[in-house]
């Protein structure tokens, strides 16, 4: 069974809940897909983070990581805001992608942050920043289909 099929089955077999958290895991030879859900119902879910660990990403050069980031930016067009590469850190060999532009409300700014790291990890979270306060991670709300599509795109964008 493919990693995506595993992940789909895992999501389908998880009973609906709200409150607490459940970690979905799917793995194959050199890739692991993990998602920490904080709510799930029949149509949608909220996740704290979604991460893919791919051994093939580990040790890649910065240019190659940038290509992965660009590919992700092109694919993830269906979230609340478009995501684009913002910063590249050559020391940690990490590419940071964020919502561009972020969603600005009356009292807070919300945005997705996606990190592509040389450690082999690609992770997606959503943050909220209120004026004068530290930014905090907030659950990202998506339908079940969008979550599966996200997982599929993470898998497809990595080498």
């Amino acid at each position: 069974m493919s990693l995506k099929a595993d992940f789909t089955a895992e999501l389908a077999s998880t009973p609906t809940f709200s409150g607490g958290c459940v970690t979905l895991r799917a793995a194959e030879a050199n890739r692991r897909l993990t998602c920490e859900l904080v709510a799930l119902d029949t149509m949608a879910c909220a996740f704290d983070w979604l991460a893919l660990h791919d051994d093939k990403l580990a040790g890649l050069g910065l240019d190659r990581l940038k290509q992965v980031a660009d590919a992700l930016s092109r694919r993830l067009t269906y979230l609340l805001e478009p995501i684009t590469p913002i910063e590249v850190d050559p020391q940690q060999c990490t590419v940071q992608l964020r919502s561009n532009p972020p969603q600005t409300g009356d009292d807070a700014t919300c945005y997705y942050e996606l990190l592509v790291k040389r450690t082999g990890e690609v992770s997606l979270c959503r943050y909220r920043a209120r004026p004068g306060a530290l930014r905090e991670r907030v659950p990202a709300h998506v339908t079940r289909e969008v979550l599966l599509r996200l997982a599929d795109d993470l898998l497809a964008a990595t080498p």
Partner: peptide, 12 residues
């Protein structure tokens, strides 16, 4: 200077 992401934490 506040960034569009309001995420600066260095001053803290």
């Amino acid at each position: 200077v506040e960034s569009p992401y309001g995420s600066g934490e260095f001053i803290r």
